[in-house]
């Protein structure tokens, strides 16, 4: 039993050391908020996801693509869970180029739920050309591609400030206290009441930041809810089996120990 405790503590120590070392190099303290999807039973807030989608389409989507997400995903379980009719209507509101048809020509048609999100630019070069050389990153896995994850995105959206004296900014460059190097080529995308929420929620910058970040988290991890649910079951199962095997082991080894 003593050895067991030693073993467990070493395991715990190593995993702790590993986690903390890979999480280092945070400079500015990020803003925190209560994310509903964190924790053992974390789930997305359906309302936040739907509002977040609205922020994404009305604000972000004019520059940022989301090329790995399909319209059908919006109606899937564990996501914003729009109804089937809503998903069809959302998809149909976008036009995309398809083809070639029988005459060998490309044509435009309304998007279907099975299509991927229509991209704002044809390609990376076009996106760069339209944005002063900076490519607005694809948002499909953006929260997983940034060190601070959701907290970083949430903070960044609220981190626009006037540059402190001594820092000069070029044309088309803005100051953001959470951005790596503090200089960002995206103008502050959000302002109070920029959009009108369908459900009547007050559209403050903070609210929109939280909603759209929740939406981005879902876009990056669409199976998060089933992962959490399955994880809880798996671990409970493993604990039960461990206990059973532990007592079986005691029983089996008692033959040896009693005999000695």
């Amino acid at each position: 039993m003593k050895n067991l405790i030693k073993l467990l503590s070493v395991l715990a120590f190593i995993s702790l050391a590993v986690t903390t070392s890979s999480n280092s190099a945070e400079t500015t303290k990020l803003l925190k908020t209560d994310w509903s999807f964190k924790g053992l039973f974390g789930k997305f807030d359906r309302g936040a996801l739907q509002r977040g989608y609205q922020v994404y389409t009305e604000v972000c989507a004019s520059c940022h693509s989301m090329k790995y997400v399909s319209y059908r995903n919006l109606g899937e379980k564990g996501g914003p869970e729009f109804s089937e009719a809503e998903v069809k209507a959302i998809a149909a509101s976008f036009e995309l180029t398809d083809g070639p048809n029988a005459d060998g020509e490309m044509f435009t048609r309304p998007a279907k739920p099975s299509d991927k999100f229509v991209m704002p630019y044809e390609n990376v070069k076009a996106a760069q050309a339209a944005n002063g050389g900076a490519y607005p990153p694809d948002m499909s896995v953006l929260v997983k591609a940034r060190g601070g994850g959701v907290d970083y995105i949430y903070s960044l959206l609220q981190g626009y400030e006037d540059a402190p004296s001594g820092i000069t900014l070029d044309e088309g460059v803005y100051y953001n206290k959470y951005m790596y190097g503090n200089k960002i080529k995206m103008a502050a995308p959000l302002s109070d009441d920029l959009i009108e929420y369908g459900d009547g929620t007050n559209a403050t910058v903070e609210q929109m930041s939280k909603d759209v970040t929740t939406f981005l988290m879902w876009a990056a991890e669409p199976h998060l809810e089933s992962r959490h649910q399955m994880g809880f079951k798996a671990i409970i199962y493993l604990i039960i089996l461990t206990v059973l095997v532990y007592f079986s082991m005691k029983k089996i080894w008692s033959r040896v120990e009693s005999e000695v």
């Binding site: 073993l7 995993s15 994850g149 399955m230 994880g231 671990i235 532990y246």
Partner: peptide, 27 residues
Amino acid sequence: FALLMFMIVFAFFVFYSPNILGHADNY
């Protein structure tokens, strides 16, 4: 028995911190 305990640690990573050992830049 030891394997099962190891699997519990393993499961925590897989289900609750699947990306913590990786690097964000790889996304």
